[in-house]
């Protein structure tokens, strides 16, 4: 089976966020594989181990993403592809990323494409379904279970806490939700092997795309931090007095009750 995973390198949002010159400062910040993409990588490896084939992890980013691609290879993916468009395209958004990925994937005859359902940095959750639409294949988002039998596929999808049992068929794109699996940590032999696995680097030219073809349709005009919350009020005194005071504050000061 020919399996592809769409991966994003993300800012670890457990980091403190500093806005500098209108951008979120990346200085000294930790970068990770987007956690939802880890589920996708793990699932891809499990599907390959069960059904045979090959797992290729693809990312659109810059050379820094090599580190996360190597991690995916160390987990067990077979090949990695870095599509570096940083120098070619100034204005990028999800339209850009999806178009680039779809252009790369269109002649790859993918049976199964996996992605995270959302990236924790931008939080847009668009790229998976966009790529499926551009490739003309069906998709199921936020999946928690995947069963493949020949070309028939049974998927369980998380729908705001409820579960949908969905039947569909390959070729297919799915996006991973928490609960799909427990992503493995790369093993030491895995890390050694990963160094020798192929990591291909492509640019816009290699995909026969021009900047105009992929230019963003939206633009960020400002980034800001939420207004500092005023120091909260820790109530004092006897618990039953505190409770009385709280109810009164919620009613008269905060006016939410």
């Amino acid at each position: 089976m020919n399996i592809f995973v769409l991966m994003k390198r993300t800012f670890d949002t457990e980091e403190k966020i500093v806005v500098q010159n209108g951008k979120v400062s990346e200085e000294g910040a930790e970068f990770i594989i987007n956690p939802y993409d880890e589920y996708a990588i793990e699932e891809a490896i499990q599907v390959r181990d069960q059904h045979g084939g090959e797992v290729t992890v693809v990312t659109v980013g810059n050379e820094d993403a090599e580190k996360e691609l190597r991690t995916a290879l160390a987990m067990g993916a077979d090949k990695a592809v870095l599509i570096n468009i940083e120098d070619d395209v100034e204005n990028r958004d999800q339209y850009t990323t999806a178009k680039v990925l779809a252009e790369y994937l269109k002649d790859k005859e993918a049976d199964l494409i996996l992605a995270g359902n959302v990236a924790i940095d931008g939080g847009s959750g668009q790229v998976g379904p966009r790529v499926a639409e551009l490739l003309g294949i069906p998709y199921v988002t936020t999946i928690t279970k995947l069963e493949i039998d020949g070309t028939n596929v049974k998927v369980v999808r998380d729908v705001e806490g409820d579960e949908e049992v969905i039947e569909t068929s390959l070729p297919l794109l799915v996006t991973a939700q928490q609960g799909l699996n427990e992503p493995r940590y790369p093993s030491l032999p895995g890390i050694m092997k990963a160094k020798k696995k192929p990591l291909e680097e492509l640019e816009l030219d290699d995909l026969d795309l021009e900047e105009d073809d992929v230019e963003a349709k939206t633009k960020t005009i400002e980034i800001f931090l939420p207004p500092k919350k005023e120091e909260g009020k820790i109530l004092q005194g006897d618990i039953s007095e505190q409770v009385k005071e709280l109810v009164s504050l919620l009613h008269t000061e905060a006016k939410v009750i």
Binding site: F11, T13, I17, V19, V24, N91, I120, D121, G122, G123, E215, A216, K217, T218, K219, T220, I221, E222, I223, F224, L225, P226
Partner: peptide, 15 residues
């Protein structure tokens, strides 16, 4: 919201 709600962005549609 971006970065899990730790920051916000303002966006416009250009095309």
């Amino acid at each position: 919201p971006i970065y899990s709600g730790k920051a916000f962005e303002k966006k416009i549609v250009t095309d």
